[in-house]
């Protein structure tokens, strides 16, 4: 039953998190704002997060997308652990993105861990927004 026009699809929900000891969160905040401005609902969990706390945020918030920001070089370890946690907790449907200083040669390993896309420094935020809109809620159905 609807009072008005067709109801639009619910906004995408994105968890943006920074794992580990790297406290450089300007990039993550810029991304959070850009996603908000494109109509998404962004839960920013802040710096120094553990894989467990990030997983908890994804599960409790019922997120469609997880964006991990890493500038410390520890992206492989965290992505591997989070990929495993997502699968073990029935959330392999989450679109899993890593951003930050990631050497191109790591992309393949990240893919194996369950990361769907990697965005390096200098990526225009519009590109990120377009990627998320095209792929969120479609993981595994392609």
């Amino acid at each position: 039953m609807t009072a008005g026009a067709e109801r639009p699809e619910a906004p995408l929900k994105v968890v943006v998190a920074k794992p580990g000891l790297d406290g450089h969160d300007r990039g993550a905040k810029v991304v959070a704002r850009a996603l908000r401005d494109s109509g998404m609902e962004v839960v920013y969990t802040g710096i120094y997060q553990t894989p467990e706390s990030i997983l908890r945020a994804v599960v409790q918030e019922d997120a469609d997308v997880l964006g991990l920001s890493s500038l410390s070089g520890a992206h492989l370890e965290y992505a591997k652990e989070l990929g495993e946690l997502l699968r073990a907790n029935d959330r392999a449907d989450v679109l899993f993105i890593v951003g930050g200083t990631v050497p191109p040669e790591d992309a393949e390993a990240l893919n194996d861990y369950g990361v769907h896309a990697v965005f390096g420094p200098g990526t225009p935020t519009g590109e990120l927004v377009d990627y998320i809109k095209a792929n969120a809620r479609r993981v595994g159905s392609a």
Partner: peptide, 27 residues
């Protein structure tokens, strides 16, 4: 304008959540 939102409350609660998996927080 855009319908988007940055939900930042979880950030300030996060330190009180670690070690308490029984607490449910939703933004």
């Amino acid at each position: 304008l855009t319908g988007g939102a940055v939900l930042g409350d979880r950030l300030r609660m996060e330190t009180h959540l670690s070690g308490r998996p029984e607490v449910f927080v939703r933004s």
